[in-house]
Design a protein around this nucleic acid. Structure first.
Lengths: 239, 239
DNA sequence: TGTACATCAGTGAACGCGCGTTCACTGATGTAC
DNA sequence: TGTACATCAGTGAACGCGCGTTCACTGATGTAC
């Protein structure tokens, strides 16, 4: 290798990158097949065609593997939703909301175990390191709150005045601050808008989870039920 | 033992009943400490002061133990909520709703792992037998729908006309039918009332889960946030 | 261009662990006569 | 009331399993001179 800054990566670096990608891929597959509690270093190594101890070259242990998968799941979800949202007409907040909601559900149906990993029961004996997970976790809810804030700023529709919003001690995330810089003054973001955004988000997540986790009665049409819940969430957000 | 129908239970029967109760109790404690995935027959037997194989006299295997705990959790939740609800003024639907919501959250905070067991990620490799679980699972949502139906029947407030309700293929549960026999004709229960009840339920469950599973930002006051969500649910239910 | 050394990916054996479930058994409780 | 038999709760040993993690090792890739 020369001293040039743009040195070509050697065989070793290439292989490592490839294995690292394969590792995440296999991890995801195992997650999908056995759930988070059943994710095992040994099983992943087996599928990777390696001896278990080899994985410790890539990951410090089971917990780090879990953390990576959690980050990957949040990122995948965020990417999917942001991409869908970008295709909606920017000046039609209701369309933007609807697109977001559908993209959320679609991703969840396509990645049920990854959804469970981030929105379901926390994995026992595992504590997610906040520094790594909170940022990717905030992308979608921040987007949702942003839609509400846009409507509020434009004065097109005022969120329904549920009592109690003003007393809420709520804090816009840094993410939201970043996103809205120059558009909505985040510190001027009214509590109502934030509270309604969070609540709409809660309802959407709850609706998806109830479908995915099988808590609905057997007789309902899941898509219709979700659409109805999404309409209610829309009403919470926009009034 | 004589042939008399009310034969006094012998020592054996008494002991069995005691052990059976203790078994559930220890199971619940293990659930609380290690989560559903960590529930093990061996560990429970250890705490019971028995050899592992002895448990097979009481339970056909790990899955049956889980099923019993699930039923126990639903029953405990149902009892708590129904009892609280009974203390609310019968002719004040908003108070009844509010009482129900608070009782729901209170039970969840007191029994987080049991909540996770029934409303969280399904336990991998385990399928809950519907015949045993659906009935106790329906108690609380049926109660909630019932509140909405009462309001609707009284004509006091009409649920907000979210579009889409009429196309929903929804079915009132037998439970609801039973509960409302003679008060509201269950078959005449309008889809809107049922849809709004289900959605309000979804929001309440989602709000509790988001608090319990740690999906809220760290800066919020959980009780206030839940109250706000409950107010939104109230609006969905009553208009 | 060639050689000596350093880095690093992956091996293979081993550690100690807890798990669910089976089986033949003992000894106490219950039952029929 | 007493005896012979049946039921049943709990024992103890054993089965085969998969797990996370450690360690000293080999052999290939990279680097300095």
């Amino acid at each position: 290798m020369t001293v040039s800054a743009s040195a070509a990566p050697g065989v070793r670096a290439l292989r490592r990158a490839a294995v690292e990608a394969e590792l995440l891929e296999v991890g995801r597959r195992h997650l999908a097949e056995h759930g988070a509690a059943g994710l095992s270093i040994r099983a992943v190594a087996r599928d990777l065609g390696m001896v278990p101890s080899a994985l410790f070259r890539y990951v410090s242990g089971r917990d780090e593997l879990l953390t990576r998968l959690i980050v990957a799941a949040y990122t995948s979800l965020g990417d999917a939703v942001v991409a869908a949202h970008a295709s909606a007409p920017p000046d039609d907040p209701r369309a933007r909301f609807w697109t977001l909601a559908q993209a959320l559900r679609a991703w969840a149906l396509a990645h049920p175990h990854e959804w469970a990993l981030v929105f379901g029961t926390p994995v026992p004996q595992y504590e997610a390191p906040g520094e790594q997970t909170t940022e990717p976790a905030t992308v979608v809810p921040a987007l949702l709150v942003g839609i509400g804030a846009d409507v509020y700023a434009a004065g097109e529709a005022s969120p329904p005045p549920f009592p109690g919003a003003d007393e809420l001690a709520l804090h816009a995330t840094e993410h939201l601050r970043g996103r809205d810089a120059g558009r909505v003054n985040p510190d001027a973001l009214p509590p109502v808008a934030l509270a309604n955004g969070i609540t709409a988000w809660t309802l959407l997540v709850g609706a998806v989870s109830s479908e995915l986790f099988g808590h609905q009665g057997p007789n309902h049409d899941p898509a219709q039920l979700f659409d109805y819940a999404a309409r209610c969430a829309e009403a919470i957000l926009f009034g």
